[in-house]
Design a protein around this nucleic acid. Structure first.
Lengths: 119, 119
DNA sequence: CTAACATTTCGTTGTTTGGCGAAACAACAA
DNA sequence: TTGTTGTTTCGCCAAACAACGAAATGTTAG
């Protein structure tokens, strides 16, 4: 029950599901998610931490950067939650818009991107 | 996105998913859910209203009583949400205990139940 | 009609949650 | 070392939410 509620709560916030959808194709580092979602670093960090605790994403530290990607779901409940979300939101306007903006963000140099955010 | 978030939020509360699980086999009237879940009538009513708005349950008015049952899910997103929940929580201790208590509630003599039992 | 009763709505209260900024932390660079 | 930088933690505030009781609603019984 606890694990299920953690999943449902993780999916009950628009910012978090937008982040989740952005990870569909590739892993992203926190600064890229910050740029995409337009919220404070501490806020995004907290959201990603919640998604991680629920088992929906995993993180990988590479130097100073933390990369997030969809969790390989060994657990059936997590896998169904992921599939449910991906399927339900694939055509949502916000998600499509994010996908477009993400392509632009990925064209930028990650280092420059982070520097830009520090201003 | 709105409909998805309504579903996720509806499933992000233990009382509501317990109610949902109790409706697996048969429809129940509000007073039976009140008895099962042990909360105030107004609280349960509000929870059921939320589940209904999300599309997870439907209600049927019969006399003074309102019966709730799982919604026949024509919408794929709703159906997957229902299946995800039913599958994930089928073996949860609280849910099993509720199922047991529910059998007792359904066995109670209507007269003794005064305000709680439905015909 | 009036009374009784199941349910809903409304207003209040205490808790949870999402947001931010400042400071702490961690990893690299000079 | 010292400074820079990406991320996280902490403390705070405002909004959202779950719970209750009282009052309103709607329905059947007398």
């Amino acid at each position: 029950m606890e694990a299920f509620l953690a999943l449902a709560k993780a999916l009950a916030d628009e910012t978090r599901v937008r982040a989740l959808m952005a990870l569909r194709q590739r892993e992203l580092c926190l600064c890229q998610l910050i740029e995409l979602l337009g919220l404070a670093p501490s806020t995004i960090s907290k959201h990603m931490s919640l998604l991680k605790q629920a088992g929906l994403v995993v993180s990988r530290k590479q130097g100073r950067w933390v990369h997030y990607r969809l969790a390989p779901a060994f657990d059936a409940t997590v896998r169904v939650a992921q599939e449910w979300t991906l399927e339900a939101l694939a055509r949502a306007p916000v998600v499509r818009q994010d996908a477009k903006r993400l392509r632009a963000i990925l064209r930028l140099d990650p280092t420059e991107l982070c520097r830009k955010q520090c201003v």
